[in-house]
Design a binder for these strands. Sequence first.
DNA 1: GTGAAAGCGCTAACAC
DNA 2: GTGTTAGCGCTTTCAC
Lengths: 337, 337
Amino acid sequence: MARTRGITIKDVARRAGVSITAVSHALNDKGTLSAATREHIRAVAEQMGYEADALARGLRRSPMGAVGLVLRSLDALGDYAPAGVDVFERFVGAAASQALARGLSLMLVPDLTRPPVPPLAFSLDGYIVTNPHVDDPVVARLEERGIPYVTYGRPPGRPEFTHWASEDDRASARLVLAHLEGAGARSVALVRGTDPNAWNLEHQDVYLGWCEERGSTPRLYELPERAGVEGGTALAGRLVDDGLPDAVFCLTGRHAAGVQRGLVARGVRVPERTMVVTGSDSEHARNSRPAISALELNPVDSSAALLDILQSLIAGRPADAPRLTRARFRPRGSTRR
Amino acid sequence: MARTRGITIKDVARRAGVSITAVSHALNDKGTLSAATREHIRAVAEQMGYEADALARGLRRSPMGAVGLVLRSLDALGDYAPAGVDVFERFVGAAASQALARGLSLMLVPDLTRPPVPPLAFSLDGYIVTNPHVDDPVVARLEERGIPYVTYGRPPGRPEFTHWASEDDRASARLVLAHLEGAGARSVALVRGTDPNAWNLEHQDVYLGWCEERGSTPRLYELPERAGVEGGTALAGRLVDDGLPDAVFCLTGRHAAGVQRGLVARGVRVPERTMVVTGSDSEHARNSRPAISALELNPVDSSAALLDILQSLIAGRPADAPRLTRARFRPRGSTRR
DNA sequence: GTGAAAGCGCTAACAC
DNA sequence: GTGTTAGCGCTTTCAC
């Protein structure tokens, strides 16, 4: 299966009876060729099925037509396909489809700071980094290299950085809390993850503000993302011991599923005694009994926005950023009273 | 945001006080350098944080550390993110995770035959092509270029080609039919898609054989994949008109959801009068009432197998192929009698 | 053992 | 208007 090389610019030049420069210029709309030559060269190239080699072209630092995607939350998890968690797959799917629609390819790249670094990594035109955390080394690396990037979720601790898009986490959090309040909840516990990303931080922030406004004591629990369903189940014990709240708001779907299972196992009636809701819809949330009310992210709009911004950056244009998209709230049995 | 170039081989050579060649050889275990020089050069390179530029390297046709993924079924659909269809997302997620685990990056590439072809497309080390159909032009293109590739699903009409992996479709089909028979079905209709890929063809083949063995008249319906749920609903009318079978086996999840909805709307009781089952689990299947029994593909094992084969091909080793993985059958309400 | 030098395919100064 | 030429960063002969 020897790799045959494709038709090169040289072949086209020879065939068209011109220099390689002429070909390069004709095909890239550069230089000052006569319309006739240009047209002729184009015809020949087309007819020969010529396609410029991206590598050689990239060597001269022209765009590659491909952007990278780094999933920081999965890097952190150390597992790129956690069972039942479909937010990332959905995001990858959406981002890929949006990229393809814009004529860009999407390359999935692992943690850029841990060797071996994928060879092409620093040759891509730009990057989407999802859920960067405080002082994210991947972001630092891109910054260092001067590679354009956008982030899915505001990079925490960097108020000056605007090239991000995400669902409006603050609005989402308020939506959920209002829903719980409307269903009669007075005391709400928040279960967040431990990654210091905007997702965790902004929900927490809104939650604390909400508690303060109402004069209720915040009940904040931190559970590592990787603790999964089991972690949630275990946490249910603590919730009971600390005194049952009217509702539990778990940011991750697996925690919510675990917490609900743990509560039910301890005889707590959901939603009658305590409601459960999650900030991130997942198979687990949908398949729990009762089904768990959830925020459904908006990967399509978010990845479209991110690619818009990224394309502007790559082209050196000012970008319309940040951009907020809207998550949908899906009320289900776990909060239906 | 000027792109800063990284440290080049030249920098390392100068710093180590050797030639460029020496650096190249030391870092690639080529040539005949003394152990001492080799070690010294390596130390300097490491200390400088040198990383070879993949582009320049690729120009000389060495591996890029990246493989492409082409989703033929989505190319055909013309939509890279059809709502509720998660098999592809799951496959992408699984393939990405398996690739990353092997130190490879995964690049999602659209139809390689429709311009504009993504620039890097022909520079990748190899390809995974999902669900190629008869005389697939993408496959032809890769073949032409001598680029190693594997297919998810046997390429139909090419018995000599072995570099593929997939769930064992024939076994899956038998599993489903046996399940239906066990639940009392005598007459079963098969609803397949129109893409001439192995998935459609092999299920059909087993189905026809099964009918023949039992002396029952086959009832075969073809429905374009893109007809979606609505197509299924419409088909339900035909099923009723043609005389209700005891069970309907729809290969795609959306067709199954539509068929069941259409049947129920016409007063047919599922599963009592007619059972419904699908060959491809999806959100639609799970969320239908009753939930639809389904085959759940095995993207994790399948993509792992594909990457094993692909890595062998790239390395020029003989590959252990084809490889069959096992789908799981999920019995649900739609076949529970 | 080591290094000079010739490309890989392309782009962009700069001559002509 | 058009072509010559010098690289981009790297690998790989092939002299020394």
